[in-house]
């Protein structure tokens, strides 16, 4: 009887541990730390913009969903609803300026005041794609 009880207890404990593991590391796993993550690619803003414009399918398969580090000349800093966006304008289109747009992480917003338009900066972000006007990045941060 004791033997069965011990087996049952072990199985129950194992099941509970597996459940906790699945809950914490699978169901409730946290988003990556984008600011600390290693970039999959490093290039300049003009290169990634031209890559999407010249062959969107090829560029999408390469960069969509990846973290890239970009170097570029900051053209504008926009604010909307307490969110900050860094813009690298590389062309003019039907909807106005086109280029690369980075939505900054909230934790990076305090760095915006140190930036100047026209300054060369290195940024990092998660590429969500190209919407036929701009290459868009989320979870953006400034690379020191």
């Amino acid at each position: 009887m004791k033997k069965y009880l011990r087996i049952f207890t072990m199985l129950a404990a194992t099941g509970m541990l597996a459940g906790i593991f699945v809950y914490v590391f699978v169901i409730n796993k946290s988003h990556p730390d984008y600011a600390a993550a290693r970039a999959d690619y490093a290039l300049n803003a003009g290169e990634i913009f031209e890559a999407y414009r010249s062959d969107q399918a090829a560029a999408s398969s390469l960069y969509d969903g990846k973290i890239v580090e970009l170097t570029g000349q900051l053209t504008a800093i926009e604010n909307a609803d307490n969110e900050a966006y860094l813009c690298f304008v590389l062309d003019e289109g039907l909807f106005g300026p086109e280029g690369v747009r980075l939505h900054l992480l909230k934790s990076e917003n305090n760095k915006v005041s140190t930036l100047q338009q026209g300054e060369w900066v290195r940024i990092k972000g998660y590429v969500t794609g190209y919407n036929e006007t701009d290459v868009l990045l989320e979870h953006g941060s400034l690379v020191q």
Partner: peptide, 28 residues
């Protein structure tokens, strides 16, 4: 929060476009 939208107030044409990978969820 990166939705492109445009409106022509003369003709009433209205468009928006959104990248699906740009949707942010609470859980990864």
């Amino acid at each position: 929060k990166q939705v492109n939208s445009a409106l022509d107030t003369q003709s009433g044409d209205f468009v928006f476009k959104v990248l699906m990978k740009g949707f942010q969820f609470e859980k990864a």
